[in-house]
Design a protein around this nucleic acid. Structure first.
Lengths: 284, 284
DNA sequence: CTGCGACGATACCCGCACGGTATCGGGAAC
DNA sequence: GTTCCCGATACCGTGCGGGTATCGTCGCAG
């Protein structure tokens, strides 16, 4: 129905397809499918352009009414669902395009749900899930997942953050072994052991303690240490990122307490999956 | 929506599933999916039974209105499409359960379309498609398909029709070679060569000429000849069917003139496919 | 208290329908 | 005649809706 209305309003398959955020061939096919279900042609295709047939005009009328009715359903149900609150934990560096898209989509779907955001420092990957401080976490692995359910949203390759004047900075790729004798920045004690091990390159290292992205960059810049970062992070002036070819990529995750049946959480995860897929479809 | 209304009215997942002609697990899953989209529980499941929540009650109201609206669309569009005629050619022996189901479904979908049926004798497999006498044929292969489009609806294994007192009648399976020296009934001259070759077991034979199923049986009964038939045909008194293990099965087909864009034909083929699939799903 | 039956949920599998890219075909314009 | 525009077609991969088998839980009977 949405497809049909779009084509009927644009009278042009290509434009209608872009309006629907899809490509033209499946749209043509969908319209043809609708025409065989109806049992009559809905459009007149000629070289001069596309025009509605009589049957098409009737259907356009009805289709608009149907879509309006469907919208009304959404509104009424959202109103009936009433106000609610969802607390989302977000890891410090997660203000990426997926998250912004997710926020918009979630508010469109559940206008009356208040989303409370609780940001956490880098060293707390579960954002207080275990403690019940948040309902769902938008975070980055790895961490201890016992008692949690997890959905992967994206994977990011990681790299080493080096000073631009470092002898290794001009290499196109590094292995962990190349950095074995370096000083690394590290996270404070008491954080998740798997997280610690991953971001320290698999070893217990010695170096300045950091809590946030900014501190990482300063640590590298001032002390000439080494740190793990994401390959797509734009490094600060005077720093470079070199791909680490033997590190498993970092996973962006949605996580929630296993067995939590709150539908708002499931909905959040679902919308998050769609949002991140869309942005990654834009840059494959 | 239909699923939700069914469960809301039955207040019982199993019964709702049977009413929807489906099994219970996918229904449960669909409802759960709907609940996450809405962001709230729609049913209260307890050991005492299933009850609607407040949100569910609102949605039930809206869902009924939406479904009613959708029905109205169908009615209005069918009315706008106006009267039309579709001529269907049917091969003599095709009064099978799939065809009756097809007829009902087609009339439900296109109430104002008059379906004219043109039955043909066995020896005319295309039912006058080439001559333009019919729009679409419900028939049985094989035949010359040049200029035609074809959709397979079912495959039927074939067998040899023998007198019950024939020495070969008690075998569990036969090859064509076992029948090489027999007299066969045959179809009149001038019919499709591929059809002729197939139903004569791949050879030009000598025997009485038949035009209809009844004649086949009489020919076998009186003359002790041999004939090809479908394994699931119930043979007349005194006759047996023995499977032919080296014959390719016979295909039941919908056929129409290639390039005929009449949507009613496409719709017919589509409904036919669904109808035959349903009956074969009943007896796998 | 223990076995059993009823019922919704879960796990797993499969076919297909939908959305994508690449390409075709035909008519119009220059 | 060549080129461009635009809808149709061909083909491919994947996610979802359908299926079967099985589980977990609760109520009930013996």
């Amino acid at each position: 129905m949405r497809y049909f209305v779009a084509v009927a309003e644009e009278l042009h398959f290509g434009r209608a397809a872009t309006r629907l955020h899809m490509s033209q061939p499946p749209l043509s096919r969908a319209i043809k499918q609708l025409e065989t279900e109806v049992g009559a042609a809905l459009f007149e295709r000629s070289s001069a352009g596309v025009t509605l047939t009589a049957v098409g005009a009737v259907l356009l009328d009805e289709a608009r009414a149907l879509l309006a009715q469907a919208d009304r359903v959404r509104v009424r149900v959202a109103a009936a669902a009433g106000a609610a609150t969802l607390t989302v934990g977000i890891l410090g560096d997660s203000a990426d395009p997926g998250a912004t898209r997710l926020a918009r989509a979630y508010h469109r779907r559940h206008p009356r749900v208040e989303v409370r955001v609780r940001e956490t420092d880098l060293p707390d990957p579960t954002c207080g899930l275990h403690a019940g401080l948040v309902d769902v976490a938008l975070t980055r692995g790895p961490f201890d997942e016992t008692g949690l359910s997890v959905r992967e949203l994206r994977v990011d390759p990681v790299g080493a953050l080096l000073r631009a004047d470092d002898p290794l900075a001009r290499r196109s790729g590094l292995k962990l072994a190349d950095l074995a004798d370096r000083r690394w920045f590290r996270f404070p004690e008491g954080t998740d052991p798997r997280w610690q091990a991953y971001w320290n390159g698999g070893a217990l290292r010695d170096g300045p303690v950091v809590r946030a992205v900014q501190e990482c960059q300063q640590a590298v810049l001032w002390n000439g240490t080494v740190g793990m970062t994401l390959q797509h992070h734009e490094p600060a002036e005077g720093l470079t990122v070199v791909p680490l070819i033997d590190m498993p990529p970092s996973r962006v995750l949605a996580a929630w307490n296993e067995g939590d049946t709150n539908p708002l959480i499931r909905s959040f995860v679902q919308i998050a999956t769609a949002a991140y897929r869309e942005v990654s479809a834009g840059t494959p």
